[in-house]
Design a protein around this nucleic acid. Structure first.
Lengths: 225, 225
DNA sequence: TATCATTTTTAGATGAGTCTAAATTCTATT
DNA sequence: AATAGAATTTAGACTCATCTAAAAATGATA
């Protein structure tokens, strides 16, 4: 077993790697809320344990072994989130925080039991894919809502869980995973976006729209500038 | 919030205090699997935080504040045990280990949700009382099964959860909390005990019978020597 | 291409919790 | 009451993860 701290680093590296290719000391420092010097010394340790590869001043990259562990933690995290939401009615903006602590102490046996009770799910409450036990993960092919055009309709695939306020904000509009909606208008220069979800209209700031990812985009691409 | 280690010490002190009045450095050392010197230094810290009182060479005692915290942890522990058994079907010999880790990271909100789902229970799967939120606990008035006499019948109140093997052993005989049974014979000098539970007979070593606590004792006290 | 701001690393310290070995205090027995 | 053996505490060291301050490397631009 690895320490909680090591698990947190590996998870953070995986998440940054998914978006940025370069996983810098600074990005980890920000994500984990620790000083850059602390990151450097942890990187040294992870590197010795062959969980990451590291070239000085060039960022880190997970090894096979490192990725396996990070996906195990992410599996724990997302199964827990879904379990809390489904079985105990915890609101989707609170499940992340709870899972953040529990994920490090969940046994494999309990993981399996939760998985079974949930019916072997593939998505967490925010739409993020749940890695399988053997370490495969179905990453989504989705785009930010902010990139849509007027007149297009789409389906919510995933909402970033990094900020509870964001989740409450878009939740009030009904923008949960699998929700269908239509873009009525979208203003230029990152202006507000008017959408129709389940019969009712809402206006959404572009900041939030960056963090709502959608699929099944249909309709005119020429509606607005 | 206190560290996991502090919580473990407080819980251990509570548990020893319940049986032994003197909570010695050595008893803590054994219960927590740490060196006696480590206990001494932790006692110093707990004492500074006013969670225990301590006279050198004379053992420790929980303060009001210390007891409150230890009961909160025990509440977490026992609610989790019951939840795991009821909601996820975890066998009663495994719930302790799982709860031991989870108890330290359980939020108050989740505690409340589990409490409600379980219907505000008063006993964990081993029959131990669950402290209330405000820190009251209904300690049981029970005696070890080993102290019974031939011919007496009684009801299982609680089984010690300190050893999973013990739980599996007595579980095979049906000696769960609330089970009624009758002592058919009991041999002297800590000999084997023959009992009848739910229609079938079993023989039980006195070692195990020390850790099974019973109430509602009825019948002859004069049956055996 | 030389310089300067940014990023990263090194050096050294800190706090938490643990350990071993040695000293001290207590207690039971003669 | 003296003393042997057990329990407890002190002293000093270790690991883990972090920090701050300072040095070094990078790379962007004038």
């Amino acid at each position: 077993m690895y320490t909680e701290s090591i698990e947190d680093y590996l998870k953070a590296i995986y998440e940054i790697q998914k978006e940025h290719a370069k996983v810098s000391t600074n990005s980890l420092s920000e994500k984990l809320n620790v000083a850059p010097a602390s990151v450097t010394s942890m990187i040294k340790k992870l590197s010795e344990k062959k969980l990451v590869t590291h070239k000085r001043y060039q960022g880190v990259k997970l090894t096979k072994a490192g990725q396996k562990i990070s996906l195990e933690i992410i599996r724990h995290h997302r199964l827990i989130e879904l379990y809390l939401a489904e079985a105990l009615g915890v609101p989707w903006d609170q499940v992340h925080e709870e899972a953040e602590k529990w994920e490090h102490v969940l046994s494999e046996d309990l993981e399996d039991r939760m998985d079974a009770v949930l019916g072997y799910p593939t998505r967490d409450p925010h739409g993020a894919p749940i890695p399988s036990r053997d370490g495969t993960i179905a990453e989504l092919d989705s785009i930010p809502l902010a990139d849509l055009r007027s007149g297009q309709s789409a389906v919510v695939a995933e909402v970033s869980d990094h900020d509870p306020d964001l989740l409450r904000y878009v939740g009030k509009m009904g923008l949960y995973p699998k929700a269908k909606f239509k873009v009525l208008s979208i203003e230029p220069f990152n202006g507000p976006i008017k959408i129709k979800v389940d019969g009712s209209e809402h206006v959404l700031g572009s900041g939030a729209a960056q963090y709502v990812f959608v699929t099944e985009v249909k309709g005119s691409t020429t509606g607005a500038t």
